[in-house]
């Protein structure tokens, strides 16, 4: 069995206006189907232990979370080692439904941006209104970071988690590094 590693081997940088770090291995399961169907809801909520997220939101409970990706897609986050067992349970619940649950853990990379400058770093890269009263913890946004698709949410104040394609991990980390370079604070969100 080969040893799973993250895309950038846990790269990090903290000399800029925000702290950047590649997150450790994260289990991710894509669930596609009719999100109003009871079997799909049950598969999602029982596997994650959280409630169904509203449109554009994320619900988290301990080390698991459910992210709303689109009207027919959810992303379930769970510990990397628990993906197989979680997926088996979901497949059992979904046996008779027209739905798809797939392990995408190794197709993605995840980053954490934290610190007071975090909002600004994200605002420099994505076309999203990141004013503190507009984007709050609990919201989930699929968008782009410069030229590549990405999704992010705030697990708590002053921290962002970003998910992107694994093949674009180096590009995204380089983007973040430049956006957070020392002395680049614009101060747009500070009083």
């Amino acid at each position: 069995m080969s040893e799973p590693i993250t895309a950038l081997g846990g790269a990090s940088a903290d000399n800029g206006i925000a702290t950047l770090a590649e997150a450790p291995l994260q289990g991710m399961i894509t669930l596609r189907g009719d999100l109003t169907a009871s079997a799909v809801k049950k598969a999602a909520t029982s596997a994650s232990g959280t409630a169904m997220p509203d449109q554009g939101m994320v619900t988290a409970e301990k080390d698991r979370a459910l992210c709303w990706m689109s009207p027919d897609e959810l992303l379930l986050l769970c510990p990397y080692d628990a993906v197989g067992e979680t997926l088996d349970r979901m497949h059992k619940v979904l046996a008779k439904s027209h739905a798809l649950a797939v392990n995408v853990s190794d197709a993605r990379a995840m980053f954490r941006v934290s610190g007071v400058g975090g909002r600004e770093v994200m605002a420099k890269l994505s076309p999203v209104d990141l004013a503190p009263d507009q984007f709050t913890p609990g919201m989930f946004r699929r968008t782009r970071l410069a030229q590549v698709p990405a999704a992010f949410w705030m697990p708590e104040e002053e921290a962002f988690h970003i998910i992107c394609f694994r093949s674009q991990a180096q590009y995204v980390f380089d983007l973040l590094t430049v956006a957070a370079q020392p002395g680049s604070s614009v101060g747009v969100y500070q009083e």
Partner: peptide, 12 residues
């Protein structure tokens, strides 16, 4: 209208 997000044209 599907996900309720308002964004500028580069996201579309």
């Amino acid at each position: 209208p599907v996900c309720g997000v308002t964004a500028e044209e580069t996201e579309f």
